[in-house]
Design a protein around this nucleic acid. Structure first.
Lengths: 358, 358
DNA sequence: AAAAATAATGCAAACGATTGCTGCAAACGA
DNA sequence: TCGTTTGCAGCAATCGTTTGCATTATTTTT
């Protein structure tokens, strides 16, 4: 039953290819190919004979030849601009694993300081990935057009583009802002402030909108807003300094991201000697791992990363098999995670049990 | 001077390829190819005529066809196991940019929880990258063999393998351990301890060796060692708890990485009410960005990331052009970064000015 | 037992480039 | 003037697959 004709195994030079297998096993190259193709017509016995022998030789079909002939690469590119924000490594890892399980390869492109994702897109496209996931806050609307011309589908992760009909997956940022506003108000805060991230990022805008709208609904008509200009620790730190020099000082600060919140808290403590949450409540949005560290114990609204990733992969799969998904946009709700950076509720009450609009 | 014959630009269907250009411009496919190949023999004028027209059509040579025929992919795979340790995103970003500048594409593979880099290697290899960078603490020695069989070169980043002759790039971990020991001793600490990371990682071992040896050299013969079992915040936290229940308590703790150190500090403060550095000095190794945050202000030994990355890229380039580099190993020294998590020096003295072995 | 249907395999044409070799002008040297 | 060199471009083979169609072997139907 040994499929290997004696003495042929250790032929010299050359990488092993289908032709080599074919000769050794006395079948055609087509048959070799079919053995590796799940739903090709081939005798069960032939297939296993081939697969066994291939295994023995360590043969795998050449992906470049495959891509060339099938016009599919099973590659998805990913453009990441801010790996220094811990949310992104977490998202990147999740996407990487989910895509791998679905049989995709991930090509990584980081955006160097001073450049925009738009600058990197042509490069990302040059390897002809079937999809490019843009995990970056700011992209121009032209990106869509550039990608399209190269036959690559664009997917935004954690951002949406109001102007275009590009696929996107985000969490319900406005809902998050609203939940945090509720929590602040429920715990007795009255002078609410917001620290923004990149000015024209959809995340900055939506979180602000949800936050402010809920405040107004509940009768707090002026909410302060301080620009952070980016999603970073330093941004939070310096924005907090500007914010706390205003009078009267806010008693609750919602930061456009967790990492901003950590910078903010640090500034409150070291620069102003303020206690969190006794003097000021601080909340973020993302629920990065660090937020749960005892030293931070940050109240936040969690991005439903798992479900966002699941949605992204499903989107890719669907488009890939041609079932041009009707659903262009996925917006997924997260949950508020109450920790110790915000004042506790008056008594046993829980935010979730309060009516939406009292 | 318009190289585009009228009316041919908007031909229907089909991606544009060299053949299309050739027909439109009335040259052969070979010539098209040569126009894109820096050092091919071709008339200057012909080249620019082709390049201009290609640009107009948005044509780029198909990378799969190129890889197929040239047997080179210009792809390097990277296996990362612990993105949750902030050192790795920082390294990843740096490598990504440096490789991009050198004209390489980066394929990312993360190691899922419960699996080892060895499990992922076959997958990483399956796309036939020319190199695979392993940025993970533990890899078996068999990996080298597996890669070799597939014609892929392996490069370890931030780890070395004593058993094999695989290329590797690391910082001088033993030197780092030594510097930290010096600093502790110079600032008057006498009961020194070490919190380890993964038990059999070369980083854990080398840092320990450098630390302990220097302690012994300077007359402190027993140095405590507490196992952390991994490079993480939680590991630091729980190891610190075990460590501080010993008597007498150490007055200085060197952690195998910054992230361990942060967990350690947290435990000291919240679980034992100890002050850092008044009661206990704590130092790490890596110099991740967070270490500089005011709330942490961690003394540490910096990994010379820029130079490590530079070395890695140079290694790749050299091997790639066949100048089989003699230098298989790069070990680069970093610097000690003194911040506020360790006691200050008695007076104006600076560690660097003290003799190596007083 | 012959005809028809079915199952398994082989043939050969793609996919889109690269590159050694050949051919042809024009330029050069004697 | 003729032979030789040089510069440029084209021919055709090649890389390693996939896949529609033709072909053969096997089974089922009548």
């Amino acid at each position: 039953m040994d499929p290997k004709p004696a003495g042929k195994t250790d032929r010299p030079g050359k990488r092993i290819n289908a032709k080599r297998l074919a000769e050794d096993l006395d079948v055609s190259i087509s048959t070799i190919s079919r053995a590796f193709n799940k739903d090709a017509v081939i005798a069960q016995e032939t297939r296993s004979r081939i697969l066994d022998y291939a295994d023995q030789l360590g043969y795998r079909p050449n992906p470049y030849a495959q891509s060339l002939i099938t016009q599919k690469s099973r590659i998805v590119g990913i453009i990441v601009s801010h790996l220094e924000n811990p949310f992104y490594p977490e998202a990147l890892r999740g996407l990487s694993e989910a895509l791998r399980e679905a049989g995709w390869h991930l090509m990584l492109f980081t955006v160097p300081f001073g450049k925009t994702p738009d600058d990197i897109l042509p490069l990302a496209i040059s390897y002809q990935p079937e999809f490019v996931i843009v995990m970056a806050v700011t992209v121009s609307s032209r990106a869509q057009e550039v990608a399209e011309r190269a036959g690559t589908k664009l997917i935004y992760f954690n951002r949406r583009d109001p102007d275009s009909s590009t696929f996107y997956v985000i969490c319900d940022n406005a809902h998050g802002g609203g939940m945090i506003a509720d929590h602040f108000i429920d715990t007795g805060c009255r002078r609410l402030a917001y620290i923004a991230g990149f000015q024209n990022a959809s995340t900055t805008l939506d979180r602000w909108r949800g936050f402010r709208d809920r405040c107004i609904e509940r009768g707090l008509s002026d909410v302060w807003r301080e620009e952070g200009y980016s999603f970073s620790y330093e941004a939070g730190y310096s924005a907090a300094m500007r914010l706390m020099n205003r009078r009267p000082r806010p008693d609750a600060v919602f930061c456009a991201s967790d990492i901003i919140a950590l910078g903010c808290i640090e500034a409150l403590r070291t620069e102003f000697g303020l206690r969190v949450p006794e003097d000021v409540s601080v909340a973020g949005l993302d629920n990065i791992e660090m937020a749960a560290w005892p030293s931070h114990s940050l109240t936040t609204y969690s991005q439903p990363l798992d479900r966002m990733i699941e949605a992204t992969v499903r989107l890719i799969e669907e488009i890939s098999i041609g079932a041009e998904s009707e659903k262009v946009a996925w917006q997924i709700k997260g949950d508020i995670i109450v920790r110790k950076s915000t004042r506790p509720l008056p008594d046993g009450k829980d935010t979730a049990t309060l009516p939406d609009k009292p």
